[in-house]
Simulated scan of single mutants.
Amino acid sequence: MTHQVARRRPLRSLARNTDAVSVMEFALVLPLFMTLGMYGAEIAWLNATALEVSQVAVSMADNASRIGQTDNSGVTPTISSADVESVLDGALEEGASANLEDNGRVILSSLEGHPVTGKQYIHWQQCKGKGKQESKKGKADPSGGLLSSLVNGLTMGGKTIKAPNGGAVMVAEVWYEYKGLFGTLFIDKIMLHEEAAVIARDDRSVDNGLTGNDKKNAC
């Protein structure tokens, strides 16, 4: 009996020993807190990236709408492919922190009213970036002969947008493949798509589309 009591004493002593309990508890909950923290960082990064893509789309549409404002020749300017390329380059540069050029595509379309029929159509469309995505608004119809589903304008945000007679609406689209801050640990790859439209703020000649090499960045 005495020997049994003697053997039990170390066990009781060990049970009453509270040294390093906090360390043990911390070790147990650390993986959970790390997982929650990483997941929170992933969601925050995704939201920040989506906001950046949206801002690129708005800036691109706005910059495209201002092409020709600095022309002081007194002649209504015709937009060149070089003008449009500079807008596309600017959009890619704005999204450089997210590596937009390698992981996405920027698309700029000119929504106009046909000079004869008055129906809406995409007169020209230019793209840049290594992505292969296409515009959700359809392809360019230089002659206006196809006059597809855009005859009454295009829909954005639940509203129908139309170009004024003799004018144009610059429609910007940005595609971006979000690959995850931690790869696919928490989320699969997500294709972000943002768009914006701004009416051209300058007097421009829209009858002949783009001048210059419009095939270089054709979609």
Rank of each mutant, 00 (worst) to 15 (best):
F26K: 12
I122P: 05
A50Y: 08
T49D: 00
T49C: 04
T184M: 07
P77A: 14
I122N: 05
P10F: 04
T49Q: 00
V5M: 11
D83L: 02
A197P: 02
W45N: 15
S54I: 04
Q125E: 08
D83H: 10
N152S: 09
V87C: 07
L154H: 01
D202W: 10
K215F: 00
Y39V: 13
V5G: 05
S97V: 14
S81C: 04
K159H: 03
I187S: 12
G166T: 11
V29W: 08
I122A: 00
V29A: 08
A91S: 11
R66E: 00
E93P: 02
L185T: 11
K128Q: 05
D62H: 14
T184N: 12
T2E: 13
L154M: 06
I199P: 07
S149I: 01
D214F: 05
T184I: 03
P77L: 15
V116G: 13
T78I: 07
T184A: 11
L11K: 04
R66M: 15
L108N: 05
L92W: 02
K159R: 03
S97C: 02
A200P: 01
L28V: 15
T117D: 14
R66L: 15
D83K: 00
N47V: 14
A200Y: 06
L111G: 04
C127W: 01
K132E: 03
A168T: 14
K130S: 11
G180S: 04
S109F: 03
A20E: 14
R16L: 13
D71W: 05
V198E: 05
G74R: 12
R105T: 02
D62L: 08
K179C: 02
I187T: 11
F33N: 02
A27D: 08
V84L: 06
G68A: 10
S109I: 03
L210A: 02
T18M: 01
A96M: 14
K139V: 03
Q4V: 12
T70S: 12
S205M: 15
G153A: 05
M34C: 14
R105W: 03
L192W: 01
A6L: 14
G74H: 05
D188V: 00
